[in-house]
Design a protein around this nucleic acid. Structure first.
Length: 596
RNA sequence: GGGCUCGUGGCUUAGCCAGGAUAUAGCGUCGGGCUUCUAACCCGAAUGCCGGGGGUUCGAAUCCUCCCGGGCCCGCCA
């Protein structure tokens, strides 16, 4: 419509030149006028170039505000009519602002009612293999790992919502040096079977590392174990595997508590046993880019901009994490259209080298999502030194904090109710606090901030959902009163309501329109978030949605009105808002309580 | 030392990739709102040389460059 108008004025543009953005001044805005001015100035020869010598002297006689006005004036009557979702187009200064029509709002609510829990789903296709968390099984997850877990899990939910077929994997290091230390520690020190198994493992792991620091000879034992495992010694493999099982069991329990789901736990050792690792090494050698360095085999990746070579085989003949990771990615590549890895900032260099080596082998490379570190006020965390705050501790304290809140607010409720809500709110708050911040910010963990339930965090969104649920359940009660209930008054009289039959055009309050418009943006925001691999942008959308619902809740009564038709329509809107809120929370891995 | 990354009111933070309308929101501070669907809510106020200098541009928080400060990496660890 706008391009037609611009063309009619003699501008040489195509539909693609018209781009829109969201704006606080309009539902949709375009800076088309700026483009047109630039195009005109650039002259005949150049079209989107910078026009490095063009612009200076010849000041254009028209300014963008005039162009904008001219374009809007040139929009033909029937063109505006045919775009029936757009209600109004105005030029404000150099901007052309578009406002949606009532039909757009009605259509949005019809879509929600039709789609329900599928509302907001995108149409993307393709299979994605997403790897996240993959913490070493040498102890419990700590607060650094949960950034990985929550980022990865939220990303997987958003990608699924966008339409992709997503399989999530945890890559288990069950064979490296650290696991050899764990295994050795398990034979030297007794395991405390009365505590969570990952905690029992880390206790002995820390002791073993102290031993190594004090006594060099321990390293010889460790190395012997590594060799044995790579050459297939059954007993050693079983001992490793037992220790790994314990740690993984504990880690899984923590992940489950956080609503983090993996489809598969893939063990590194399988790539040793299958011979894939040695096969990779042979093919790397065949590229001619490898060489011997003091007995070790290294790959020269200088063609890819890496000065440092990459070691793929130790001088003692054993493989390294990186080598096994190459085999893992080669294994994954044919199973999917796209691989995504979520790694901590410490993996930045190595993941770049991994991608380069995969390219060398002509294997599809993964997209890597990097998040910066979470450190403690006294410095960075270390499982080995026992310097960390475990995820379990954090989550337990958050649930406890949520419990005391619910105790304060709803003392009359049952213990079961309070416990359930405390879990939903505590975990939700933890997840939201982590996901709302963009991953490239490094953070310092602080108990006080962590346990301070930030306003407009997860509880805020959950509360909006609970409010919507409450209105709907009250309406249902009114519609089917219990035999003992007093007769309903006129204002609260039963309103048979179904989203399909409501007259949405009655919803004309500003707060109603604002809420509907926000609901309408769901799919777009999901696709944006999925496309950019930025879950935090969707977390912000969920908050905005709750914000608009709370405005509506404050200013627009639903149950206490006389007009039955209007009540029906508003109930339908509340229903749509509840669906949108529930779907948004689900994408964030946060439970949506009916009451809290 | 080299590479990557971050720096936005007292604190936390969005916007930066694809430069444009008074820079987003929360906490904290100050003031207001529960006989009306749960106040984990809502409304209002104050608070910003968008780390600093230079450059590109009609226009820079956004692009380029140098500098300063924090984080991460530069292992035959993962």
């Amino acid at each position: 419509m706008l391009s037609e108008a611009a063309i009619s004025l003699g501008y040489d543009i195509t539909k693609e030149d018209v781009s829109f953005e969201v704006s606080e001044h309009a539902d949709l805005a375009t800076r088309l006028a700026f483009r047109l001015m630039a195009a005109k100035k650039g002259g005949e020869g150049e079209d989107g170039g910078k026009g490095k010598e063009g612009g200076k002297g010849e000041k254009s006689s028209v300014n963008p505000a005039q162009i904008a006005k001219a374009v809007v004036d040139a929009i033909s009557e029937e063109s505006l009519k045919s775009a029936d979702l757009i209600g109004k187009v105005v030029a404000t200064g150099p901007y052309i602002n578009l406002f949606v029509s009532g039909k757009y709002l009605v259509q949005t609510l019809e879509n929600v009612a039709g789609a329900k829990e599928n509302y907001g789903s995108g149409k993307r296709t393709g299979k994605i293999l997403l790897e996240h968390t993959s913490a070493n099984p040498n102890g419990p997850l700590h607060v650094g790992h949960i950034r990985n877990a929550i980022l990865g899990d939220t990303l997987s939910r958003i990608l699924k919502k966008a339409g992709y077929d997503v399989e999530v994997q945890y890559y288990v290091n069950d064979i490296g040096r650290q696991i050899a230390v764990v295994s050795w520690a398990c034979t030297k020190y007794p395991l405390n079977m009365n505590i969570k198994p990952d905690n029992a493992i880390v206790d002995v792991y820390i002791k073993a590392n102290q031993d190594i620091a004090e006594d060099e000879s321990v390293n010889e034992h460790i190395e012997k174990l590594m060799k044995k495992v790579e050459t297939g010694d059954k007993e050693t493999i079983e001992s490793f595997s037992h220790a790994v099982d314990m740690a993984v069991a504990g880690i899984s329990e923590t992940l489950l508590l956080m609503n983090v789901k993996h489809d598969k736990f893939v063990r590194e050792s399988q790539f040793i046993q299958s011979g894939a690792v040695w096969d990779i090494i042979t093919r790397l050698e065949a590229t001619g880019k490898t060489r011997d360095a003091d007995g070790a085999l290294v790959v020269d990746l200088s063609d890819y901009g890496f000065e440092k070579t990459l070691v793929v085989r130790r001088s003692n003949g054993t493989s390294l994490y990186t080598t096994r990771d190459l085999a893992y990615h080669e294994w994954k590549a044919p199973q999917c259209d796209r691989m995504i890895d979520v790694f901590g900032a410490d993996h930045k260099l190595i993941s770049g080298q991994l991608r380069a080596a995969l390219e060398l082998l002509k294997v599809k490379t993964p997209d890597v999502v990097i998040f910066e570190f979470v450190s403690l006020p006294e410095g960075s965390m270390s499982t080995r030194r026992g310097v960390f705050i475990s995820a379990d501790d954090l989550l337990a304290q958050m649930i406890e904090a949520a419990y005391s809140e619910i105790e304060k607010r709803r003392p009359e409720e049952t213990e079961e109710f309070k416990k359930a809500v405390a879990r939903m709110v505590g975990i939700g708050a933890a997840r939201y606090d982590i996901i709302k911040v963009s991953p490239e910010k490094s953070t310092v963990f602080d108990w006080k901030t962590a346990l301070d339930f930030e306003k407009q965090g997860a509880p805020f969104i959950q509360y909006a959902h609970a409010r919507a649920s409450n209105i709907l359940s009250k309406a249902a009660e009114d519609a089917a009163p219990a035999p003992t209930a007093p007769a309903a008054s006129a204002a609260t009289a039963a309103v048979p309501f179904t989203p399909e039959t409501a007259d949405y055009s009655l919803l004309t309050e500003p707060a109603e329109a604002a809420l509907i418009k926000k609901i309408a943006l769901f799919e777009q925001r999901i696709e944006e978030s999925a496309e950019n691999l930025k879950p935090h942008t969707f977390a912000i959308y969920a908050r905005e949605l709750a914000d608009d619902f709370n405005q509506f809740y404050r200013y627009v009564p639903v149950l206490n009105i006389e007009d039955a038709e209007l009540k029906k329509s508003r109930l339908a809107l509340v229903y749509s808002a509840k669906v949108a809120l529930a779907n948004a929370l689900s994408c964030l891995g946060i439970d949506a309580p009916e009451s809290m």
